[in-house]
Design a protein around this nucleic acid. Sequence first.
RNA 1: GGCCCCAUCGUCUAGCGGUCUAGGACGUUGCCCUCUCAAGGCAAAGGUCACGGGUUCGAAUCCCGUUGGGGCCA
Length: 494
Amino acid sequence: MASNQVRVRFAPSPTGFLHVGGARTALFNFLFAKKLKGTFVLRIEDTDEMRSSDQSTLQIFESMKWLGLSWDEGPDPEDPAKSKGPHAPYFQMQRVDLYRKHAEELKAKGVLYECYCSEEELDADRKHAMLEKRPPRYSKRCRHLTDEQKAKAQAQGRKAVYRFAVPTDQEVAFDDIVRERVVFPADQLEDFIVIKSSGGPTYNFCCVVDDHLMEISHVIRGDDHISNTPKQVLLYKAFGWQPPKFAHISMILGADGSRLSKRHGATGVMDFREQGYLPYAVVNYLALLGFATTDSQDIFDTDKGWDMLVEKFELERCQKSPAVFDYTKLTWMNGIYIRRLSKDQLLDAVRPYLTGAAAPVSQLKEFVALEQEKYQLLSDAPKLLDFFFTETYAYRWEELKALKIEGLEQVYQELEAECAKLVDFSCAAIEQMLKGLAKRLGKKNAHVFHPLRFAVSGRLQGPSLFHMAEALGKDKVISRLKRLALERVAAGIS
RNA sequence: GGCCCCAUCGUCUAGCGGUCUAGGACGUUGCCCUCUCAAGGCAAAGGUCACGGGUUCGAAUCCCGUUGGGGCCA
């Protein structure tokens, strides 16, 4: 295959739900791949057997699907046991033989050595180092064990870990697309473990083997991995492999400046769906955390799908500093995209939140559309539209009282009579009728409009009155006026 | 504790040595539109570009230090 082919991967651990930080990392990988006509690989890093779960894996699939982040290679979401792509399997637990084989290869090269130190010994070393205010790094005690010493340790029933012998005479450096050159003095790196005493490989090792075998060209990940990178670079060198290009993107913080966590609000991708966000609004917002165009464009329209976002996205323009997640701005953006929906799209989007609403689809569509410019969240629909679906909505009397309209009694009688007379109960005709009535009664339009609005919805804020009345239909408007007349007397308002 | 990274309005950011009396967006406030609430339009407030030194004729922009924040290792 062509070596200049762009191949990126998103490699989550299935130890919990996909959160916004992970989602953004996935998004940036996806955008980069799309832009350069590359391949987006999904790999599941499930080597932490204690904390990994199938449920989390499925959650990750669902979250990515919801956001629209489809992968070209990786597990088959329909049947995770199967994989699509030439580098299967894409679950690390199914690749352990590969890691073992490569570890042996490195050991044969003399880069790895067996370490028999016990937990107690290491703990003691660590405490000692702390007391002397030295960084707690491994002493390299086992670096030059004789066969005899090894045999002795084994006879005591000790299990070896494989450590990487870090060359101390050179610094480790790598070029990062976001951060440019990053340098670590080698003496800062300890002889890290490659194979644990259980025989299991460690994170850094799996990562390097997989990224190489899967021919990953660019590793785009959160900058919490930045200090893993020199270790990985060392491994690439030891294997004689060409390292990929790295891009470490900044983290996402909560409003208080600390790492974003549940106490800051929703953080799981699926939480956003539940709360009434549109997936593309989340995508657009996430893209802007740590990335901006030269003109600070904020809305990347969807006239041609994600094309505009894909075209404008540039890894080189990503921010080095962390970004605070701002729910208010996300919510504003959600409103923008809700307003851009067609009536049909809006109905589909809002429906899951309108579980109790009984109305014919065509009518439902009209009701939902009447408040289109008002939803910030799709989940706002029920409280905005409740009066459409019930004849027993509550009246907010204090709102009506506050208007201090003279002669309400008469206004209501006239309203009922006029509505009953109106043959063509259309928006335009209703408007004409109401304006005529106001004129005839010598009242401000508002003093006729508001009472009707109040009668049909129980409150004074809502959709355009004429449209609302038309959508409700003549019968309901009249019956609601009748109900109001009865209750108004009981409430003592005239 | 060691190392690494970062630092422009409350927040997301533009800026990559002179065009910056620092631009846009969210949020806030006011006005307009208007049957209400929104939406939309317009306008305003909000930044001594973290601080202190340099370099330079000239620095938000380059260098050093300090402070603050974040990350990783344990």
